[in-house]
Nucleic acid binder design. Structure first.
Lengths: 190, 190, 190, 190
DNA sequence: TATGAATGAGGTTTCATTCAT
DNA sequence: AATGAATGAAACCTCATTCAT
């Protein structure tokens, strides 16, 4: 029993939340402000999300997934680890720079206490592919012996830093992206 | 001639803020909760800080400074860049792991909209020494041509990731710290 | 489609404000006290009035209008100026003596800094009819050459004084009212 | 045992209160603001006045007395009632126009709930001279039979209205004052 | 289901007054 | 006596959530 109209509303609320949070910060993002930005009534928001926290968690998981999907799109299946990581890196940064509000919102949600352990776990699972690729990338390299989660976090940190730098100062994105990728590769593979 | 304003009180408020924020998150850190935790009346807090925002900014700047001071303590002045960075790295991580609440609070403040541009500038100036050291470290290496601010951010990001990993899973800190330092060095100096 | 905003509620808030202000004074009239007196939740008050100041201004304008309407009710259209002013004067005093709380509230609001210039202007316009009547009353008399606004203010001042005197000491209202009207007429028409 | 230094302080606090109240309104006149304006510490204010209310009452009584003294200064003792009232009227208006802040403060205090019945009584007594003069002025006139207090209030109301008009629009003060006096005389003596 | 008014707990800040110095 | 920090009770207002329509 599909509810197409409902899905549109749900989506528009999530999009509005992204806009409001990225513009005014998480603290100032009232549910009423989100609802109004979505062109939806105050009460309707709570039809689609039981709780503000529910909404934030849903948004977090969805943005994370969207970012991962963008990164893995058109991955050259038969290429070697470096070429694949390279491809992914470029897609990743492209997504971040073309959706700065989503990126900024994600940064806010990442440190929010509203995001539950369950959501963090969900996201971690969706990063399985990423972990596999990193595993292959670091094989035989200096990072081979630390927990893979650490490699993931460090890679993510460099990616975040790069995204923020690119968004803040959009000049010469290619060179910056290139330099950052080489740095990541040195971190992983030596 | 009246009761003098007490540094102890001011400090205890800042410490209480650190505790409350790290325990409950920035959003849930009410001034009344901070005051109570500091063993001070609600109104007293506003004797020492005009505004909640003022308090948060002061806390941010102080924690940043404290972290930098801890990192640069006992720096071997005549050593080469790698040895100095190594020393600093180890002090840095030691500070973070022995003050997990300060570290967590700092992470929250870093993304808060309450932290003013002025505070960020103040902090940036206090990172001048760090920038100099990174400058010497990357000389001749693959990161020599990107803006120094980018090198700073990436180094900071790896440090943050390492700190969080160490705090979350405190096993084998030496090995992890060692691995992370080598990663940073590869990033900077190749 | 939702519960409509209720005029009854709005009115009951304004009435409660009148009661609280007249009983305890403007300074002591907390929004919470007004809401409670109106039998309405604290937050509801702010559904109907964005701000305490908004509420006070609305109350001021409404009371002024109500007073003017009461004064002009059943005005004998074809009578001469003196008869009309006489009629108005008696209605005016009757309103004030039968609504002492409104009268007292008005006196408080009149000197409040919360009442905006806009509200004062609104009220002034609603006194146009009054100004016209005074204009006709003073024609050829000793007050013919001062600004009409001055005649208005003086008349209003005598009225205020009379109202206060009648409310404070309600004995022989007719004689007092009569004496005051004759005084006003002497002021205007000589 | 004179306390000249203290008297100076007491006076400076009262003067500061006048300034602050006339500038910002009674509601916004915090004791700390008054103390600061007086160049005195917060706590000192409460050495001279037990309570904010005490201060306001003292200020009210003093300003009223000052106004009365100014009005009666140099009264031609042997002149007839009209000449004396004329003289008084002119002094009265002169005081108000040369001390607009005192006048404005008085207007605020007049309606404040902080002013006690006792203060009002004190003031009424100090108006005994005024009442006597009005008594002589209205003798044989149309106002001869109403309570003298009513004559006092009406006269005061016209005076207030005139003062406010003069302060708001200082053009042609002589003519306005003259017109107002004639109006008062018509009210009292017909 | 959609709406938006209703609710009331809770947040920040002010301020008269007290008290240690 | 003078000072100004300390106090805590309000005050105004916001906002997540509920509920009548």
């Amino acid at each position: 029993m599909a509810r197409p109209r409902s899905d549109i509303r749900r989506t528009s609320i999530l999009e509005a939340a992204t806009r409001v949070i990225s513009a005014q910060g998480l603290a100032a993002a009232a549910t009423s402000a989100i609802a109004k930005d979505a062109g939806v009534s105050n009460g309707s928001l709570f039809v689609y999300f039981d709780t503000k926290s529910t909404l934030l968690n849903a948004l977090y998981v969805q943005l994370k997934k969207e970012m991962a999907d963008a990164a893995f799109a058109d991955l050259p299946a038969s290429a070697d680890a470096r070429a694949q990581l390279r491809h992914l890196w470029s897609r990743w940064l492209a997504w971040a720079t073309s959706h700065p509000d989503k990126r900024r919102t994600l940064a806010q949600l990442e440190v929010s206490d509203d995001i539950s352990a369950e959501s963090h776990n969900l996201v971690r699972e969706s990063q399985r592919d990423m972990a596999d690729l990193l595993e292959r990338s670091r094989a035989g390299g200096p990072m081979a012996d630390v927990p893979i989660s650490f490699a993931l976090v460090v890679t993510g940190a460099i990616a975040d830093a790069t995204m923020d730098a690119l968004i803040r100062d959009p000049s010469a994105p290619e060179a910056r992206s290139e330099a950052a990728f080489e740095a990541v590769w040195r971190v992983l593979a030596g």
